[in-house]
Nucleic acid binder design. Sequence first.
RNA 1: GCGGGUGUAGCUCAGUUGGUUAGAGCGCCAGUUUGUGGUACUGGAGGUCGUGGGUUCGAUCCCCAUCACUCGCCCCA
Length: 412
Amino acid sequence: MQPPRGMHDLLPEVFKVHKFITETALVIGQHYGFQPMSTPLVESMDVFCRSLGDVSDIVSKEMYELIQKGSERLVIRPEGTAGIARSVISNGLTQSLPLKFISYGPMFRYERPQKGRTRQFHQISVELFGFPGSLGDLEVITMAYDFLRALGLEKRVTLELNTLGDKESRDAYRTALVDYFTGYKDKLSEDSLIRLEKNPLRILDSKDEGDRAIITGAPLLKDHLNETSRKLFDEVKEGLDTLGIPYKLNPHLVRGLDYYCHVAFEFTTDELGAQSAVLAGGRYDGLMALLGGPEIPGVGWACGLERLALMIDAPEESNGNIALIIGDEDSRLKGLQIAHSLRNGGFTIEPILGSNLGKQLKKADKSGAQYALIMGSEEMARGEVTVKNLKEGSQQSVAFEQITPYFQKESS
RNA sequence: GCGGGUGUAGCUCAGUUGGUUAGAGCGCCAGUUUGUGGUACUGGAGGUCGUGGGUUCGAUCCCCAUCACUCGCCCCA
């Protein structure tokens, strides 16, 4: 038996890393006033077709569609932002701007798995609606930076920054690009010829050697930015400079999805093979309108937990745990009683199985517990329980009713 | 969707130019030690050799298919 392709069990060791990353994001998010929320895993296919665009790879070939009874076409979400935007409209939240959400959960894309890329993957995403201008961009990018720094990754990632401009600027640029690349139609790679039809900006990102030479002479977006777009981007750069957040301009950084505009950014790494982006985002002012809502500006990002998890280890847990060793049948109930009161006192205690004391102590030690609480016939007779400090090797007797106060004192 | 590599014990990996009972280290279980762990020694369990088919007297090994993983392309977090 194997799990479906590209889907993985999150066993405790990895789960712990995911939990650490998620909790870190929630704490940092709280500092910025982002509220946790979530949306269904399943949405109407329309939500993604309208927002991501029919020609995007995600919509055209990567969505899992549900076989179901009604006529509505339902899909399992391939990304998070569209669903959250839909939720904003569904719940009439457009009346209470700005909205600042942080959410996390699994996403599904039918792709070929490789390192850092699975069919079910997990993202944390941050969305900010109703913040026009560079203030919103800066809030979101700064938060991403603080988050990565809290994970200890700020030296191992690079913030790459670009602007796509507003619609007017981008349309003008797209026209210029198409004109330019059409002149090299016989020299472009096969992939880039398709891009020329579907998404000419993508050619700038091509890894093909031949394409690269042609790209060097391609027109630049910065020469097509209108005044508004240029000003916005300058403000973002100035803000990052002031806040001391390092970045690298990458004029070839583009976005595959229709709803993006203005600032686009990616935190990239060279530690994950072909997958370089661990956290990416940008501005999506057009998104709400695409879904039939009012024109509300938005900006946000998403990060991949699997990718981040490949880069970090879970922090060492301070373990004050207690192992309960029950010596015989007659002392079992007393042992459980003591364990129960300790748990109610906020301590972690769990029974250890084993045929004799030696084995049980060995297991207790292996479990990482700091203390072993031995409850056997001798203890029953004395009315005291034996508490052994597994790290130090010392042990002492503690009266049954004194056990919770004893551990309270130990842990203080 | 396209191209390359890999698949032997829970883990990391040997191995068989096609031959009868497939090995090691680590881990696990047990004993030395029937109320005191971490060390040491001794023993033990655990394998459809990814799966299915083919060639062969005989396949873990050769061939085909398939599944999964992996590296890259595409795309993306």
